[in-house]
Design a protein around this nucleic acid. Structure first.
Lengths: 194, 194
DNA sequence: ACCGTAACACTAACGGTTAGCTTTTTGGAA
DNA sequence: TTCCAAAAAGCTAACCGTTAGTGTTACGGT
């Protein structure tokens, strides 16, 4: 098979990105609720069905990087340097993710998300998926066949940390504060700390 | 005002309950997705608009006791005996709530919820609301004006505990295991333990 | 007995989403 | 180069949850 970028895949990715860009622009210009799917599709010059073949829902248009965040979390565990403790790697990654949310230009997007119940709800369900993925990675890292209750709990705490930090006055300090709690919780499970 | 049960309030409560009962019956008989709102309304012999004046959404029909759960959590903090430590009260309450989910007859409902993405998503957003309410109660109990990051984090951990325990093979053991972690996290904040 | 209002009803629509089907584009085989 | 199977995109028409707008009835307090 043709390993590098086939034209088909490139065109598909381009279509996807054009839809996402158009949607975000319209949403920011006129408000998420005030812009309909038919409008986004028309402005991006694609059919409504095409839009839905790239994005599972209207909300998914806003969280285009969804899969990336999940990958980052998992890779923070699986791809860390051999001598880095598990929790330290997670703390570092959550710091990076929170930093990313505070990037210039991201503020209007987050304001839009906070203003829309539908978007907030979607973000919550995203977090659960990320927690499940992270729990799996944690289990694998510990040599377990399945994610234990402790793995699942820690994974949830970690994704909660990101969410809470984003809302806090001082996100960096909030991450530090919550990770002190998470490390204590982790230590209480009797897990190794390497 | 007439303190006891006015006829108007009784009729309203009866209508609400009839709608909820009818909906749950139809959902369990034929599947959540296979039953439409118009059908539920017709079977309960009310107008669609009446149904939506009692329940904010189709999913809310399934989680009729939503407000009760939130109240239980908050009251576990505010209404505990003066000598009971905060975390012990919360652990007891989460045990009770998980027990309640395992009640006979509840199994089909939870199977239905697990099978429907819409219901799962709704449950997640419910959890967040409960966590916010609990965070407020925690802050009040500690004499704080606003919920701090630590309060919010602990509140999330507690509602996560309930969710994780419900999915675990041994719910009781899971609650115990997670609360060991939560107590460690709580202690790490330097909070008093009374 | 009367009035204000809460509860309920009806119609019609809006907006997200999907099914069914056709057309175009693309990668690779003949 | 030509042709085919499949992927991608398109169009139409609906389904379904939800809401606005507008009456109508039944109740509680005066």
């Amino acid at each position: 098979m043709t390993v590098p970028t086939g034209r088909r895949e490139r065109k598909k990715a381009a279509t996807r990105q054009k839809i996402a860009e158009t949607a975000l622009r319209l949403f920011l210009e006129r408000g998420y609720d005030a812009v309909g799917i038919r409008e986004v599709a028309a402005e991006a010059d694609v059919a409504v069905t095409t839009l839905f073949s790239h994005f599972a829902s209207k909300e998914a248009l806003v969280f285009e990087r969804d899969a990336d965040f999940e990958r980052c979390l998992v890779e923070a565990v699986t791809g860390r340097s051999p001598d880095e403790p598990l929790m330290a790697a997670l703390r570092r990654e959550v710091h990076a993710l929170v930093e990313h949310c505070a990037a210039p230009g991201a503020a209007p997007v987050w304001r839009m998300i906070d203003a829309s119940p539908a978007l907030r709800q979607y973000e919550e369900s995203m977090r659960l998926r990320h927690a499940d993925a992270l729990a799996g990675a944690l289990a694998a890292d510990l040599g377990l066949a399945r994610a234990t209750t402790a793995c699942r709990a820690i994974a949830r705490f970690v994704v909660d940390a990101r969410a809470l930090a984003r809302e806090a006055d001082d996100p960096r300090a909030a991450v530090e504060e919550i990770f002190v709690m998470i490390e204590a919780a982790w230590a209480a499970t009797g897990a190794r700390t390497d």
